[in-house]
Design a binder for these strands. Structure first.
Lengths: 352, 352
DNA sequence: AGGCAGGCCGCAATCGTTTGCGATCCGAGG
DNA sequence: CCTCGGATCGCAAACGATTGCGGCCTGCCT
């Protein structure tokens, strides 16, 4: 007499909910979806909801995606998760994506165009709805092609020449301005710049900002005092500083393209028996973690990583929702955090 | 006369390949899949391959997943990507998962069980085939439940009591042994331990290893010289060291449960005008990045993060492929890297 | 009373693959 | 010549959801 209770070991399906509520799967679907719920009788809807609840129904996103051609996933293309710059950005991104029902696939390119191409291909084959790209070079054929193909993207920390893409970046001009102002305030007049790679938009914009800042303070812009680093890395920073020191031009301070480049300087100081900030002051860029515990604690310009990520997430959601909205870019204000790697310039200007 | 060339703007489907090759989609499917290719004539297979190639066919993973109930995705549950311990592990994991055709969803729990539950639920609803979990506490109802439900998992850096789960961890005993041996080698006899949370398996195993190491070296095991930190964090490390200092017991060295706890000590030294290593030596655990640039550079026991991740990936693939294989765990050997935070003990043993 | 407008809900197609099953064809063996 | 087995391949039913379309019923208006 007891109705035989067949137990399904697999997850409950819409069909099960419908059956339990005594309606057609189509009706159950409409009842479950807030968008279409008003197409079904309130009572019925309630019944369906209760039924779904009671058996712990979770819609199968695979099936849903197949039908709707929407996956609720985006791709996140970064050079290297191991670079401490990125984790906070990633968290910012995820914290705005998650509430919107989206998730992010993270891929690392190691700055290898080959690898980048493959990874992006993998993302596309997984049907991501958009891309957040942190690996942009100023000229970037892959991104140009993707853009032509209508792939939705937003750039973070980078721009690409001649492409109207939404992007979120720190205000490099303002940041470098803060750094330089701080140094001249301390009496430095011969300031060097360890520039980031000039094939990245931030590399050139910070270098340009550096020149402008010098001029604004009435200082000469000596081209011999800025050298380019091939990567945003410690080893390249070290190489750059060595070139600078061996160049024979005197200087009492350096503003580094980013924190890693600045940290590379520390290695050279150790190598050559110099001390920072007594021999030369250093200011970094980015405010990566644990700088306060370095030797010496690095003064740097802080940018709001988490917010950058969050803004990027929002921008991407926007461009997914309204594809033909005019690309809007956001610029975030940096701030200077002064620590012990900068000190007043020695009176003897010939220090080197 | 020219055959009208209808262009599909959407991605090519299996059906298109089949049509181009003049076969049924089923045949095309079999030809494309190496597993089933021998079921179709070699010539036909070649034709299908060529056709697929020519129109750039990429199988739709959504549809495939729906049919095969396999998604090629796994979940990666970590407390906080921002903790520098995890990025290298993540890279290790991805580098073995990717070649196997798998991808990982990363979720952060912030050590919040609530959030953890929600995140894991989200992962499961996305139909992940397995979980790599780095947030395990020794007693962990959620994991126990998942295990009962047959969810495939591997633990990283943790074990959970009474659950036979594959795991990959560093050899805590050996690591702590190295640290203590190093310190007694420097003449330290009163050594303190800032233990990690005792609700984590590593927290207790390192604490136990510490006691054993003391005994092995013929030193007294003074319970007052080990205090527990509530989290694996700087602030908890600082709190711990303050308790230790205020406890009145003399000591000349501390082995910290991990690097962050050790760095927390640095803050207290600054607070109290003490200097490391002159007043007290510190050794950390994990070898997080940039320790060499700290003040002072931190002596620590290095564990192979990347390898831990890679092993975890391999273990998970194994348990997915052969679900009822006996759970196997791997233990990775640590090594000591000596820097400037440790120095010979002062002759005056009453330093404090 | 008849007609019409909604409200509500079911039917069935569809998304793009995979796969069990059966049909066809061929050559070989009896 | 008949049969049988193997090699190929097509048919169609899945997988689990969404959704356009149309049918039914109710209630209201004229």
């Amino acid at each position: 007499m007891a109705s035989p209770k067949i137990v399904r070991m697999t997850a409950p399906r819409l069909r099960d909910v419908a059956q339990l509520a005594g309606v057609h799967p189509a009706t159950a679907s409409r009842a479950l979806n807030p968008q279409t719920r008003q197409q079904v009788n309130a009572d019925t809807a309630r019944r369906v909801l209760r039924a779904a609840e009671s058996i712990g129904y979770q819609p199968n996103p695979i099936a849903r995606s197949l039908k709707t051609a929407r996956t609720g996933t985006v791709g996140l293309v970064i050079p290297d998760l191991t670079n401490p710059l990125f984790p906070p950005i990633v968290r910012g991104i995820e914290d705005v994506l998650t509430p919107a029902g989206y998730n992010a696939w993270i891929v690392n390119t190691d700055n290898d165009p080959q690898r980048e191409e493959a990874q992006v291909e993998a993302l596309r084959s997984r049907q991501v709805e958009g891309l957040i790209v942190a690996t942009a070079r100023r000229t970037h054929p892959l991104l140009a092609r993707l853009h032509r193909q209508g792939v939705k993207m937003v750039l973070v920390n980078r721009r690409v020449d001649g492409l109207e893409l939404p992007s979120v970046t720190a205000d490099d001009d303002a940041g470098i301005g803060l750094a330089v102002a701080h140094l001249v305030g301390l009496g430095h007049t011969r300031i060097a710049h360890l520039a980031g790679p000039q094939h990245t938009s931030t590399g050139v914009s910070r270098a340009r900002a550096f020149r402008h800042a010098l001029i604004d303070h009435g200082l000469p812009d000596d081209p011999a005092l800025t050298v380019e680093c091939g990567y945003w890395s410690e080893s390249e920073g070290a190489r750059g500083l060595r070139r600078l020191l061996d160049g024979g031009r005197a200087f009492t301070a350096v503003v580094a393209g980013n924190d890693l480049i600045a940290l590379g300087c520390y290695d050279v100081f150790a190598e050559r028996g110099m001390t920072c900030p007594d021999d030369v002051s250093v200011v970094g860029f980015n405010e990566m973690p644990y700088l306060d515990k370095m030797r010496p604690p690095l003064t740097t310009v802080a940018i709001p990583h988490y917010e950058i990520g969050a803004e990027a997430g929002r921008l991407l959601l926007d461009t997914i929702d309204e594809p033909d909205r005019y690309p809007r870019s956001v610029l975030l204000a940096p701030s200077l955090v002064v620590r012990a790697s900068t000190t007043p310039a020695p009176c003897d200007a010939a220090s080197r």
